[in-house]
Simulated scan of single mutants.
Amino acid sequence: MPNKPLAIVAAGLAGGAADILTAFVIYRPATPDRILQAVAAGLLGPASFDQGMTSVAIGAVSHFVISILFAGLYVVGAGYAPVLLRKPVISGLTFGVFVYGVMNAIVVPLSLAPERPVPPDPMIGLGLMAHAFFGIALAVAAARILRTPKI
């Protein structure tokens, strides 16, 4: 597959942007700064909320690094299962739900973020929706870069 590094970075940025922008809407009235500090809390713990723009920047960078890592997994997977590039919407939707599970069952529990109560069902649904947008944006971006045009 040509342009794998470009596909990984572009897909990660596209997915990460779709996810974080959806989070900014879902978690209102929390501000984008506060949401990014919550992301940074995974690395910094509760002190993240006292570190101002430093933790906002750490949250933004870490969010997109994680998105790019997941994009790398998707692009490598597409090398073994080209259907991921031929059917990016359904593949991306499925991948987004997979990422939601990984983040909530493995990454967040192992992070330094303070424990939170189990969210109500509507918030779980909105979180799944944000990750669906993440997966679709990631998969469509990867497919546009990596699919070979039909002659």
Rank of each mutant, 00 (worst) to 15 (best):
V25I: 08
Q51W: 15
P149G: 15
V56Q: 02
H131W: 05
A78W: 13
I20S: 01
R147D: 12
P82E: 13
A57E: 08
A105Q: 09
A137P: 11
F98I: 07
P122V: 10
G12R: 01
F95P: 04
I90E: 13
A78I: 12
T94Q: 04
S62L: 04
A40K: 10
S111M: 09
L73Q: 11
I145P: 06
I145N: 07
L44C: 04
K87S: 03
D19M: 10
S55I: 02
V89A: 11
I20A: 04
F133R: 09
P82W: 03
P109R: 08
L13E: 06
I8A: 05
N104Q: 15
A142Q: 14
M123R: 10
V83A: 14
V97W: 00
L126R: 07
V83L: 14
G77D: 08
L44H: 05
L73F: 07
I8Y: 03
A14M: 10
M129I: 04
M103L: 15
Y27V: 08
E115A: 15
P119I: 04
F134K: 10
A23H: 09
Q51C: 07
A113L: 05
A18E: 07
V102K: 09
I66W: 09
V9I: 03
V76M: 09
P46L: 09
A141T: 15
V56W: 03
I35M: 02
R28L: 08
E115I: 07
L126E: 08
V61S: 15
L126K: 05
I35P: 03
H131Y: 14
I58R: 03
I68Y: 00
I68A: 00
V76G: 06
V75L: 02
A7M: 00
D19K: 07
Q37T: 05
I145S: 09
L73P: 06
I145E: 10
P88Q: 07
F64Q: 04
Y80T: 05
A38S: 07
A141L: 11
P117S: 13
I124V: 14
R34Q: 12
P82R: 12
G15L: 00
L21M: 00
V102G: 05
V89E: 08
V83E: 15
Y80C: 06
A81T: 04
D121G: 10
F95D: 08
A40T: 11
L138P: 11
F95R: 03
R144W: 13
G15P: 03
V140G: 00
P149V: 11
D50K: 08
R147I: 03
L43N: 05
D33I: 07
F95H: 03
G15V: 02
G77V: 05
L43F: 03
I124R: 14
